[in-house]
């Protein structure tokens, strides 16, 4: 039990990175724009957050710059795919390459730059005393984790129960109809791509300032941006499911290591103790999961059933027949 609490506590901490990135992509995709540039935007965020925090000594300024920088980069994708009507997949992939390249060049020499003032870690008074829930969610977590707790229900409520949320969904489901109702499809799509970019930047900043302080080139994100893209499909474009999935994946990262410790599991000899190769197999799972979800999610019939935004991936041209 004690061991499980440790794993889940760590999972919530590291899963917050995935949470921000996934939430951001949920917004972008709900508006109809698939953005495969999450990995690149996260790297931009991680690099700029660490760099700014290092030079100014203010981690919050780092977070802000990370969100602005990643948001700005996301607008390249918005311009190409929304205004120029180009293929969203190609543009998104290009954005990942661009973001990776920019962050590597600007982050050159940053890795050895030394310690940096990090975002604070805190326990919530009262709430941390609740059995089980307290130690997992409210004890010694980074302030970013708590921001995640606030952001998730807000996003869920916003998308499902507010007027702007309704517009967002309309733009992603049936842009022609939304347009006819006087909703500016282009402007909204730009806006939510921007939101997605800023949240990806926040995810990157969460790594480099809280979860794993420092800048380690591509290893900083190590494919988490792609996992986020897969999680969006798995979460069926729903913020609450996105949170559950993100925390579960965070916990899996830690489980892979902790499970090597005990000699027995549930009264049986622990295979992960007796054979390290089993642990390596577990390490592969998040990536294997993402590939499987992306492949399954690419089937039209499945997509309809799991509730993909109907206009996802389709550029909107005013006057042409809608979806």
């Amino acid at each position: 039990m004690e061991a499980l609490i440790i794993i889940l506590q760590a999972g919530v901490g590291t899963g917050t990175v995935l949470l921000f990135a996934t939430l951001g992509e949920v917004f972008a995709e709900r508006s109809g724009v698939l953005n495969l540039g999450v990995e690149g935007m996260m790297l931009i965020g991680a690099m700029s957050a660490y760099s700014v925090a290092l030079s100014t000594g203010d981690p919050w300024l780092g977070v802000l710059v990370a969100m602005l920088f990643a948001g700005a980069i996301s607008q390249i994708h918005a311009f190409i795919s929304i205004t120029l009507l180009a293929d969203q997949v190609v543009s998104g992939l290009a954005l990942t390459f661009l973001g990776t390249g920019i962050s590597l060049v600007l982050g050159e020499g940053l890795s050895k730059a030394g310690a940096v003032s990090l975002l604070p870690t805190l326990s919530v008074p009262l709430l941390s005393k609740i059995p089980l829930i307290g130690p997992i969610f409210f004890t010694n977590q980074s302030v970013m984790v708590y921001i995640g707790y606030l952001l998730t229900p807000l996003a869920w409520y916003y998308i499902n129960y507010t007027r702007p949320g309704l517009h967002l969904r309309a733009v992603g489901e049936y842009p022609a109809a939304a347009d006819a109702l006087g909703i500016n499809v282009y402007r909204l799509r730009y806006l939510y791509v921007l939101v997605g970019g800023m949240l990806a930047g926040l995810a990157g900043a969460t790594i480099s300032l809280a979860v794993s302080p420092g800048w380690f080139s591509e290893l900083t994100t190590a494919g988490q941006g792609w996992i986020a893209v897969g999680l969006v499909i798995f979460a069926q474009w729903d913020p609450l499911r996105a949170a559950a999935g993100s925390y579960a994946f965070g916990a899996l990262r830690r489980l892979i290591l902790d499970i090597q410790g005990p000699t027995q599991l549930f009264g049986f000899p622990n295979p992960f103790y007796y054979n390290p190769y089993w642990g390596f197999f577990l390490q592969m799972l998040p990536y294997a999961f993402t590939i499987i979800v992306l492949v399954i999610g690419s089937r039209e019939a499945v997509r309809k059933r799991i509730g993909a935004p109907a206009a996802l991936g389709t550029p909107y041209v005013r006057g042409e027949r809608g979806v």
Binding site: L34, L36, E39, D87, Q88, V89, L93, T96, S217, E218, G223, W226, V229, G230, Y287, T290, I291, L294, V295, G297, S298, R299, E300, R303, L312, G313, T314
Partner: peptide, 23 residues
């Protein structure tokens, strides 16, 4: 559109594989 999205997501999967094996 169906083909497009299928290809799209398969490319995305491939990119993930490359990202994992690459640098």
């Amino acid at each position: 559109r169906k083909t497009f999205l299928t290809v799209a997501l398969l490319i995305a999967s491939l990119a993930l594989v490359l990202a994992a094996c690459g640098p």
